[in-house]
């Protein structure tokens, strides 16, 4: 047993796993950003986050090399393709921002029983939030039950146990600066009260 200490560790010539940078905009390895519709944004991101790789990929040399191996015809087609993609991406972006400007998030306080409330939050998806994730986060943050529920209209919303309307409002406006406060509405559902 004593000599196990002296036994050399098994020789390993294992290569360390490669560390790959992925684009913060389009998620691809940056060398493939040129094939998405967000090249300009990707390029800016890389310049900020990885200047070395940026210099490598976007130097004049690299660009010239890229094209030299393609026939003139293929270059033209690739260029046209890239333009189409970029146009599509910017149209999509315009649509989304318009949708954002006109969409409303509704935080509704609903009285369940006497002094028992639930909070229903709808409209988050228009701002690109993922309901499942946000519901989970609410649950953790407010230490209460929180889930994605179907609405009568066929959509989905988040239902949180308890009256957390103000907290949800604060959380949204702090965490998502791109959501204007005036697009968030706090309402109260008193239909049960008035019926009583």
């Amino acid at each position: 047993m004593a000599d196990t200490e002296n036994t050399p560790a098994p020789a390993t010539d294992l290569k360390p796993a490669r560390k790959v940078v992925y684009c913060g905009v389009c998620t691809l390895p940056p060398e493939y950003c040129e094939y998405g519709g967000t090249v300009k944004k990707c390029q800016d991101w890389l310049e900020d986050h990885n200047p070395t790789l940026y210099a490598q990929l976007y130097s004049a040399d690299a660009a010239a090399q890229n094209l030299s191996t393609l026939s003139v015809d293929a270059q033209k087609r690739a260029e046209k393709d890239a333009q189409k993609k970029a146009a599509k991406a910017s149209a999509q972006e315009a649509r989304e921002s318009e949708k954002r400007a006109t969409s409303k998030i509704i935080i509704k306080r609903v009285e369940r029983n006497k002094r028992k409330y639930v909070t229903e939050i709808s409209g988050l998806e228009a701002f690109g939030l993922e309901l499942k994730k946000v519901a989970k986060e609410f649950g953790k943050k407010f230490a209460t039950g929180s889930s994605v529920t179907k609405t009568a209209a066929g959509g989905e919303e988040i239902t949180v146990q308890g009256d957390v309307s103000d907290d949800v409002f604060d959380w949204l406006t702090e965490k998502y600066e791109e959501i204007p406060e005036e697009n968030i509405e706090l309402v109260e559902d008193k239909k049960k009260k008035s019926a009583a």
Partner: peptide, 16 residues
Amino acid sequence: VHKYPWCFTRVRIDRG
């Protein structure tokens, strides 16, 4: 694959 490319059988396509 990106972490361990040498673990797989590989071919290559042209740029086009």
